[in-house]
Amino acid sequence: MTDMIVQPLHAPPPRLVRPSAGIFALYVGVGAFFLFSLYGSNLSPAKLIDGLPNMLRLVGEMFPPSLERLQSVGGAMLETFQMAFAGTVIGVILSVPLAILAARSLTPHISLYYAARWLIALFRTVPDLVWALFFVVTVGLGPFAGMLTLVVDAIGFCGRFFAEAMEEADKGPQEALSALGAGRSEIVFSAVLPSAMPSMINSALFTLEKATRASVVLGLVGAGGIGIELKVAMDLFQYDQAATIIIGVFLLVLIVERVSSILRKLILK
């Protein structure tokens, strides 16, 4: 069969649209800043190539991983997950009332809306390690400081996403309850929260995954968990023990992500 040749009356539009002067300037600006950032980061392929033998030596010394302190590593691993789980649960619970205040359609007063939004933004934007240092100074070294850090981290993350889920909740049931004279709390608990719940569960499970990863690092500043074990092993050049810890962390995060994914499918189906 031969291809049919047709001649349309109108020419097709151009394949590419010429950017406006402003957009073109933006592209150039972003490109220039990227090059400036590479310069600021001391980008050096030569150093990377020179460092490859060191990397290979390090990896060589890590294997086979040492099982000498397996029990102590296992204990620290459990403590890490306990911090993550407790911190997430408490953070998620505290996020709910804060998110109600931070949802524009539900907040009782605009000043409370801004106060809640600012608090959530503060919790979210200050990095974990800074909060960990703050709590180590406040309550001392150990997992309690780590748990408090993860509570703050969970509020920063969940507070924002819970508020957005509540604002986007189906307005129909809310209007129906409002039309029959229901009060604000009735509308929130009977219509808004159930409608937003799938999205909130999703956010809570992501928070648990995030907290598990974060809890590993918190030990580096003395806020409990496996991080301190890893730091000691690296400082004492016990790379085989460090390898055991890294594999343990990898498995822990993997298991939490897998279980979280299964739960998400079960709950949200």
Partner: peptide, 11 residues
Amino acid sequence: FVFQRHNLVAQ
């Protein structure tokens, strides 16, 4: 008030 859309809480 009965609405065109039933406006039930689906969950």
